[in-house]
Design a protein around this nucleic acid. Structure first.
Lengths: 154, 154
DNA sequence: GTAATATAGTTTCAATTGAAACTAATCGCA
DNA sequence: TGCGATTAGTTTCAATTGAAACTATATTAC
């Protein structure tokens, strides 16, 4: 007769936060390497460019809000992007503390190359899931996100 | 009549690698904060303790393999853990390059407190999913992992 | 046996990141 | 108006991380 263990065993490789972390870091790192090698672009810089490509004229604070980056990280990414001539910055007429950020022509050219590559990578991953699994994944990630927000609010 | 866009738009907040990254970092950071505050334990240190709690007497290389950390990170985490008296290190008889790592009594005490807290946090997240979703998530993470391994091998 | 190669783990040095302080502009309100 | 509090964004300084070199031991080929 075998005893029931007093508590569940923590098996790291089955522990959800660990699995998510390893999977996510592996995916991000692989993508980052490609961006870096082919476009001399870091993940943080790419995130900034991605939101500026979608929403023109954001302020740095708005970029931070849409990229889950903090304002220091955004400031540094912007310094590099502006230095490389990929982003242009003006000051906002209505509030001279704020900036108005736009991709430059050069920035748009990079965006036009990187965005399809990013989407392709995503599609190659999703191709391993059937459509119902894809929906299910999207749902589940939403639920986990809500769950974690509650958890944080505790 | 509306034109079909030439390519799919990259909407960062729907982009799988981004969503995974934000979710995973948020979860990890919340857990990390708890470990840090209550046990003065970093995530990397906890991962090392977690595998030593499960597999006694591993070498540093084996710890690295089971935690998805590199050997430098393991070496540093071990230095802190040994310094804090939470892990003991011997040299392996059969190969004096290798170490034989074990939790100390003090280490086991910490393990005994942290492991249930970690499992509770996981359960609180999973409680937002019904059992079929939980199975589905496990499946999908496996498939994405395989997919990414293939992607890397390309 | 011994020289060349490989492996386990640590250290060093540079680059990245995080936290706090800082500057400049705006807001709230007497 | 004008003064304290707030907000946008940057800078500074310390802590963390990553890459490469390094030490010590073991293995392989001769």
């Amino acid at each position: 007769m075998t005893d029931k263990p007093e508590h569940d065993v923590l098996e790291l490789e089955r522990f959800l936060p660990y699995r998510l972390s390893v999977l996510s870091n592996t995916i991000s790192q692989a993508i980052a390497e490609m961006y870096e090698r082919r476009f001399a672009l870091s993940i943080t810089e790419w995130r900034v460019m991605a939101v500026l490509g979608r929403y023109d004229g954001l302020s740095a604070r708005e970029v931070a809000g849409r990229t889950a980056m903090d304002k220091v990280a955004v400031s540094r990414a912007l310094a590099r992007l502006i230095g490389a001539g990929r982003v242009r910055r003006q000051t906002a007429d209505h509030d001279r503390r704020q900036s108005v950020l736009r991709l430059s022509a050069k920035g748009w050219k990079v965006y036009g190359q990187v965005a399809p590559l990013a989407l392709e990578h995503e599609q190659r991953l999703l191709a391993h899931l059937d459509p119902s699994e894809q929906r299910s994944l999207a749902d589940i990630l939403d639920k986990l996100w809500d769950a974690e927000l509650e958890e944080i609010a505790r």
